[in-house]
């Protein structure tokens, strides 16, 4: 007789456990989870002096200088899949009394251009350096092309030059990457 009384109590506890449930939740929402970090990173920088635009050996102006750096992360699948927008910001400070044309040419591993942009920099003086800001927002189709590139060629062209030219052209730059993971 006593043994029978244990049954209801066990039933109560076990049924509490069995009826335990998960309510008012929607796990399909997991598909909507998206991380959207905005990452600020330095890009390139340089300081070119007026001397760099004159070849002392040959006494001839050197109107164009260029350099190349790999940016291998651009064409990695992480960037191709998750990068939604890239904002480039270039900050020039020019104390050379000449205007400059700057060209950024993005190349894929086969050296074919996938994306390019250019700007001009106003002239300054050694006493009064002039800042020029340039920004470029890349998204959509352009971004698809940009993320095929693995390097960038930076070409700096001065309008004219001579051995007495003084001053510096300085570039600082950064990129804001808008990601969606």
């Amino acid at each position: 007789m006593k043994t029978n009384l244990s049954v209801p109590l066990l039933v109560i506890l076990v049924s509490i456990l069995l009826t335990a449930c998960v309510k008012d939740t929607d796990f399909d929402e997991a598909d909507n989870i998206a991380l959207t970090p905005v990452v600020e990173l330095d890009l390139i920088y340089f300081i070119l002096t007026a001397n760099d635009f004159f070849d002392a050996d040959t006494s001839n102006p050197r109107l164009t200088v260029s350099d190349t750096t790999e940016l291998p992360f651009l064409e990695e699948s992480f960037a191709q899949e998750n990068l939604k927008r890239a904002d480039f910001f270039f900050k020039f400070t020019n104390s050379i009394p000449r205007n400059f044309d700057i060209n950024f040419q993005f190349l894929n591993p086969d050296n074919t251009e996938t994306y390019s942009t250019q700007t001009s920099v106003s002239q300054g003086t050694p006493q009064n350096p002039v800042p020029t800001d340039f920004s470029e927002i890349v998204e959509g189709e352009d971004l698809t092309e940009l993320t095929k590139a693995s390097k960038v060629v930076v070409t700096v062209t001065i309008e004219s030059s001579n051995e007495n030219l003084e001053g510096e052209l300085n570039l600082k730059s950064k990129t804001t990457y808008y990601l969606e993971l």
Partner: peptide, 21 residues
């Protein structure tokens, strides 16, 4: 790290570029 410093070396044709990255 402050980014990539370009030094614009005089490069003759065919010479490899500096592997900054």
């Amino acid at each position: 790290v402050n980014g990539i410093e370009l030094i614009f070396p005089p490069i003759e044709g065919g010479e490899p570029t500096i592997p900054y990255f």
